[in-house]
């Protein structure tokens, strides 16, 4: 169903409003950095299709109350991301590339979990039983 717009700019405004409203829940906006925290920004990666690998650049920021040695790990599969010596806070840029939610953990030198965060993966289109072929015009 196609409509030529009689008031195109009004609709453009409505759509623009909707465009910016629902996107990207960001954990940094929800909770201020106070105690021991690990924050992913953005905390959501959106792929076009369900099951497709999602790509984004994520900043992982951590903050603790006392100086120490800390390492940042990806939980599963376990992988070291980066370590810091004598620090109480820092950040690192990560190339996120996954089709599913990934959890990251901040571990201290006693190998204790200090803080945890996750980057979720969502999608626009569900997997469909129909294969598609489309032409633009």
């Amino acid at each position: 169903m196609s409509f030529r717009l009689s008031n195109g700019f009004a609709l453009l405004g409505i759509f623009s409003l909707g465009l910016v409203w629902p996107y990207s829940v960001n954990s940094a906006e929800l909770t201020p950095i106070t105690e021991q925290q690990l924050i992913a920004q953005p905390a959501l990666c959106v792929a076009l299709h369900q099951g497709r690998k999602c790509f984004t650049k994520v900043t992982l920021t951590w903050h603790v109350q006392a100086l120490g040695n800390f390492c940042l790990y990806q939980k599963s599969p376990r992988r070291k991301v980066k370590c810091w010596q004598k620090s109480k806070g820092n950040s690192t840029l990560l190339e996120f590339e996954s089709s599913e939610k990934l959890t990251f953990q901040l571990i201290n030198q006693q190998n204790n979990l200090v803080a945890e965060t996750a980057i979720d993966v969502s999608w626009v289109h569900k997997a469909t039983p129909r294969k598609r072929r489309w032409r633009l015009f």
């Binding site: 465009l19 996107y23 959106v46 626009v124």
Partner: peptide, 8 residues
Amino acid sequence: HPISKNWT
């Protein structure tokens, strides 16, 4: 390209 969970 996806813009959000509902927009492309």
